[in-house]
Design a protein around this nucleic acid. Sequence first.
RNA 1: GCGGGAGUAGCUCAACGGUAGAGCACUUGCCUUCCAAGCAAGAUGUUGCGGGUUCAAAUCCCGUCUCCCGCUCCA
Length: 550
Amino acid sequence: MAKIDMGKFAAFCKDMGFIYQSSEIYGGINGFWDYGPLGVELKKNIKDAWWQDMVRNPPPGPDGQEIRMVGLDCSIIMNPKVWVASGHVGGFADPMVDCLKCRARLRADKVWFGGYYPQPAQIVDQQMPPFVLAVESDNKADAEALLNDLYAKAVKRKKLPADLQRAVTFSAAEVADRKWQLPCSDPKGAGCDGVFTEPRAFNLMNETHTGPIKSEENKAYLRPETAQGIFVNYRNVLDSSRLKLPFGIAQIGKAFRNEINPRNFIFRSREFEQMEIEFFCHPKESRKWYEYWRDLRKRWYSTLGIQSDNLRPREQGEDELAHYSVGTTDIEFMFPFSDEPQELEGVAHRGDFDLKAHAKHSGVGEKFMYFDEDRWNGDSANRTTNSFKEWIKSNPPQEEIEKYLFTPHVVEPSAGADRFTLAVLCEAYTVEEVPDAKGKLESRTVMRFHPRLAPVKCAVFPLVNKDGMPEKAMTLYRELKKRFNVVYDDKGAIGRRYRRQDEAGTPFCVTIDGDTLQDDTVTIRDRDTLKQKRVPISEVRCEIEKALES
RNA sequence: GCGGGAGUAGCUCAACGGUAGAGCACUUGCCUUCCAAGCAAGAUGUUGCGGGUUCAAAUCCCGUCUCCCGCUCCA
């Protein structure tokens, strides 16, 4: 994709009413954006397309079976315990130390330092060891194991000599007692000679308080992801819907993260909207479903007009995986602001991390286990009893039990609605040369949206404002707008009106002319080819519908 | 978070210490039978925000906010 100047592109989006900076008249606010009249239609169409294609009418599963999918709409503020269970509070609300040089960030209460010396180790107390590595761990024993790994890695990368010996291990408090500046060592690669900052509280979650009195007891968080709302309602959905595994729960909603550095227009913002599915299945089948969703989600973007050249699925390496994941594919898009593809959606295999975490923290325990009654009944011929309880007493192998009773595994396709909106805007944006009335080449800006996503589906024009053309055009406009987002425009020359619609990405322009008054036919002008065809006025609706289904 | 750049009418820009302006767009009217036409009239500003220097600041200085670019970061 050709590079687009994001400043100019943001100006274009503002000019057209796609996207504005939030609270602009007060100088704006970093990381927040508003959608204008065209933008809100575009984004709504994107969300509607996702809901239609994923929730109401998903394609058949890997074995040709119907996909079971239901929707959900959870509150943004939840019991703060949700975020303790999910791991967000631990990782994102505790004091952290940062290295200003290599940007490493570790939890202040969990950081351990290993002191390394050339052999034989000459330890001088109160004097900082010549080589230091830092790791994060709950206890000293684990820390030392991690230090061993890190040292091996550092040696492999030739950041440290191979013949050093770790002679001491300090906690952060012990280092502070010795009045050393907490040394950094680049926990990822080793070799950084920076120092850590004083412990600072980082809160990547937005905090708020519920109730009129602001106090520590009623502190709450704006959700940093929609996923947890699905997990905590997992049992409710199962109990109220007669669903059986495998099935999915989908949600579209806002999430909030205090990004350190919001950047690249609406790509990384502090308030954003996610379109997420949590798909629950038997652990043995999770690989199959992971692949199904990974492939389906990539295909979905293509059907909405994203060129596959600009789309990359990228399987994450083990060291990049989030704390809960055993496999993740990022579906990435070549945004014009970067040479590197950037994440549109993550399809993650989250295993049973979330359900187990909530089962444990909430105390619901085994209620999050799933009993596959169909399978149990189906296998009755191989057993002497039909009672699962009885059968369990016979001490069957664990693997046999888990065929019927297990904590479901989860595959999570999590898409960014704003990111995809930006991708659609970038992909659609085209400036081209077209001949004007006199045959001279002029530049034309056109948003080549897929008709399904286009904010406006059709514009209706009277060719001139006389002879009853405006009335005829208005009648057609009123008829079409019952079904589509349509605009009426009688201002300025016809060419100008076409161009205005090109910039808004309107796929069709219908013009009422002299012939219409005679024989009830109109011209339909195609945004991309500029070609016109004449059709009976009664067929306009049909033409638009055909394009929407393409 | 660090470094660099930018911010004047809706947009693109000019004014570079001395009356804030042009083109486009916009509004109204006329004229217009298919790709940014023409004519006439009209409206448009806390020069991002706050302070300082000066007789006088869009202009010089300091601070701040926002955006862009490069590093960095991104559960």
